[in-house]
């Protein structure tokens, strides 16, 4: 038995009849920033939704801190999900609640805290992500970057040992994206959390990643460190890091 924190073995997933992930296997160590990369539509987000138990795979195992997600019943899965923080691509903030209520929600549900403490924890988490004072704003009043950060604040509300972050810098300006990278590094350092990031932003991969997993059309084509990835023998991985286009961009995308 390895000491991996999260282990994925032979994961196969379909959308309808279309094969999206084909025998994907890898493991994530404790307190590392694990980055899943790959071109658009390669199955990154699908992988992330399977790892968090939001989708059920066709076959394979996802072992999370010693527990196989597939063998858990509904209550067991819910209990496991409480130890996971998720920040979604489109933020997933509840639009009917203020930012403060959004962050407070997991605390109210599972935190076993009184309201004064909840309010203070909300203040703390929002300060951590640079949104101090935004408690009473509605998600619709926030900019894209603020929404991502509010979503991250909610994800870390219960101090989960692992946080999933789907496309943190997509659609953000470079300054905001760099700020988020720093924030992720700080959270790893200060809170000792494991972070799993799905992205295809080269700059942020170089900055934060301890470990890189590359998917291409549902297959793992690279699994190693950033330095290894930059000089990988896998042509497609090198192409990704050197930002080289395909020979015939139109034909490949068909």
């Amino acid at each position: 038995m390895s000491d991996a924190f999260i282990e994925v073995q032979d994961l196969v997933a379909h959308y309808g009849e279309q094969l999206v992930l084909d025998r994907v296997s890898f493991s994530v160590q404790r307190n590392e920033i694990f980055v899943v990369i790959g071109g658009s539509g390669c199955g990154k987000t699908t992988l992330f939704k399977h790892m968090t138990g939001l989708l059920t795979p066709t076959s394979g195992q996802i072992i999370h801190a010693g527990q196989d997600i597939m063998t858990l019943d509904e209550d067991g899965l819910s209990a496991l999900q409480r130890t996971i923080g998720i920040a979604f691509q489109s933020s997933g903030l509840f639009n009917s609640m203020t930012v403060g209520e959004n962050v407070a929600m997991p605390l109210r549900e599972f935190g076993d805290m009184d309201e004064t403490l909840i309010a203070s924890v909300v203040d703390l988490k929002l300060s951590l992500v640079g949104l101090a004072g935004a408690q009473r704003m509605m998600p619709s009043e926030l900019s894209g970057g603020m929404r991502k950060r509010a979503s991250l604040a909610r994800a870390i509300a219960l101090d989960p040992p692992v946080v999933y972050f789907d496309e943190p810098s997509a659609g953000l300006d470079p300054i905001m994206a760099a700020g988020l990278d720093d924030l992720i590094l700080a959270l790893k350092r200060l809170l000792g959390i494991t972070v799993i990031i799905v992205t295809h932003e080269l700059d942020s991969i170089r900055k934060v990643a301890d470990h890189v997993l590359m998917l291409d059309r549902g297959h793992v084509i690279f699994d190693g460190t950033v330095a290894e990835a930059e000089h990988s023998e896998v042509e497609r991985t090198r192409q990704f890091f050197e930002r080289r286009p395909d020979e015939a961009i139109l034909q490949r995308s068909l």
């Binding site: 496991l80 999900q81 998720i86 979604f88 903030l93 599972f110």
Partner: peptide, 8 residues
């Protein structure tokens, strides 16, 4: 998804 991801 966010709701389910919180285990609710």
């Amino acid at each position: 998804d966010a709701l389910r991801g919180m285990g609710l």
